[in-house]
Simulated assay, not measured.
Amino acid sequence: MQIRRTREMILNIIEDPQHYHSHFATFSTSTAMSAVYGYEPSPRNDPLVQLSNDA
């Protein structure tokens, strides 16, 4: 699961390097949500990941 999330983060950074800080935040939040809740967030702009990051 962590390797899959890492690959998604790397692809996001390659596609949109200007917002790397957002990609790091999405990576850490989505990894935790996958491990704890079994939730599979989308690689970009997932509403629950955004809500968690905003909180």
Rank of each mutant, 00 (worst) to 15 (best):
Q50C: 13
R4F: 08
A35V: 07
D16H: 11
P41K: 08
S22K: 15
R5Q: 11
P17E: 04
S28E: 13
M1V: 10
I13N: 02
T6I: 05
N12Q: 14
A32P: 07
F27Y: 10
G38T: 15
Y37G: 12
G38W: 11
T31H: 03
T29G: 12
S22A: 15
Y37P: 06
P17W: 01
S22F: 06
R4Y: 02
T6L: 04
F24S: 09
A25R: 10
P41D: 09
R4D: 04
L51C: 11
T6H: 05
S28M: 13
T31E: 06
H23C: 00
S42V: 08
F27G: 01
V49R: 04
H21A: 12
M9N: 03
E15K: 13
N53M: 07
N53G: 05
N53H: 02
Y39C: 09
R5W: 00
R44C: 12
T26H: 12
M9E: 02
N12D: 06
Q50L: 13
N12C: 10
I10D: 08
H23Q: 00
S34W: 06
N45A: 05
N12K: 04
G38S: 15
H23Y: 05
R7D: 00
I13G: 06
D46N: 00
M33I: 04
D54Y: 05
Q2D: 12
A55P: 10
I3G: 05
P47M: 06
N45H: 13
G38R: 14
Q2V: 14
P41M: 05
H21D: 08
I13E: 01
E8Q: 12
P43E: 14
S30G: 14
H21Y: 07
A32D: 09
E8D: 05
Y37T: 14
M9A: 09
E40Y: 00
A32S: 11
T29F: 02
V36W: 13
V36N: 09
A55K: 11
R44Y: 10
A25M: 04
S52Q: 14
F27C: 00
R5F: 08
I3T: 11
T26A: 06
V36A: 08
L51H: 09
A35T: 14
V49N: 01
L51M: 12
T6F: 06
Q18T: 04
Y20F: 10
D46F: 01
Y20H: 00
R5L: 04
T26D: 15
I10Y: 07
G38Y: 12
S34H: 05
F24M: 09
A32G: 08
P47Y: 13
E8G: 01
G38N: 15
